[in-house]
């Protein structure tokens, strides 16, 4: 009888392992979140330096800036550094988890996951770059949240279900950040920073422990 139970368990595990990429590590999320908070803090401090105002709202309104051009270069630089650092930690902890579990990292499943993430993210990146070129910084911040959330919603078909809800929250925060004019950076820090840390910890406790 135990043999049948074992068989059912094995069937269940194979179905899950073969249709979902399970090597995503919660720690990737935690570190991506910390990186995002550091990036947001860097932008805030620059605004204080340029306008000598500590007000957290209206950070992206270019008319307050003594040097709009300088702020633009600074923003693009910070965005690229933040993205690369988050990507580095994301890949590092996923590789670590896969090799610990003895799983192959590059398989048809992770390929699907990467493709479904990359297409909306690329679209979002182009969208945000054009907005920054037009000096519309706050909409650029909001659009990164929305596109990232949609990318996660799409990719969630190929990995754990938690990613679906993370995506949903990112989209909601992105939309709220357009409604509450002036608070873009706060919403951005909430979505990319706090949400990533919370979700990363939840996933770490649920799957990695």
């Amino acid at each position: 009888m135990n043999e049948h139970l074992d068989n059912l368990r094995e069937i269940r595990s194979l179905m899950e392992r073969s249709s979902k990429f399970l090597s995503l590590s919660g720690l990737s999320g935690v570190f991506a979140g910390i990186v995002a908070l550091l990036g947001a803090a860097r932008v805030y401090l620059k605004k204080v330096e340029l306008t000598s105002s500590y007000n957290v709202t209206g950070i992206f309104s270019a008319k307050n800036m003594a040097e709009p051009g300088e702020f633009k270069t600074f923003l693009i630089q910070t965005a690229i550094i933040t993205f690369l650092a988050a990507l580095f930690f994301g890949i590092y902890f996923t590789v670590r988890k896969a090799s610990k579990n003895g799983d192959k990292l590059w398989n048809p499943l992770s390929k699907k996951l990467v493709i479904s993430l990359t297409i909306p993210l690329l679209a979002g990146a182009v969208f945000a770059i054009v907005l920054i070129q037009q000096l519309n910084y706050s909409l650029a911040a909001s659009s990164t949240l929305v596109f990232y959330g949609l990318a996660l919603l799409g990719a969630s078909h190929f990995t754990v279900r938690d990613v679906y809800f993370l995506g949903l929250f990112e989209v909601i925060l992105g939309i709220l950040s357009i409604v509450f004019v002036g608070y873009s950076l706060l919403f951005w820090a909430l979505g990319f920073g706090v949400l990533h840390i919370v979700y990363g910890l939840l996933m770490y406790l649920k799957y990695d422990k």
Binding site: N7, E10, I11, R12, L14, M15, S18, S19
Partner: peptide, 10 residues
Amino acid sequence: LGIMSVLMVN
């Protein structure tokens, strides 16, 4: 049994 399990969901 394992082969069929995999092919059921892919």
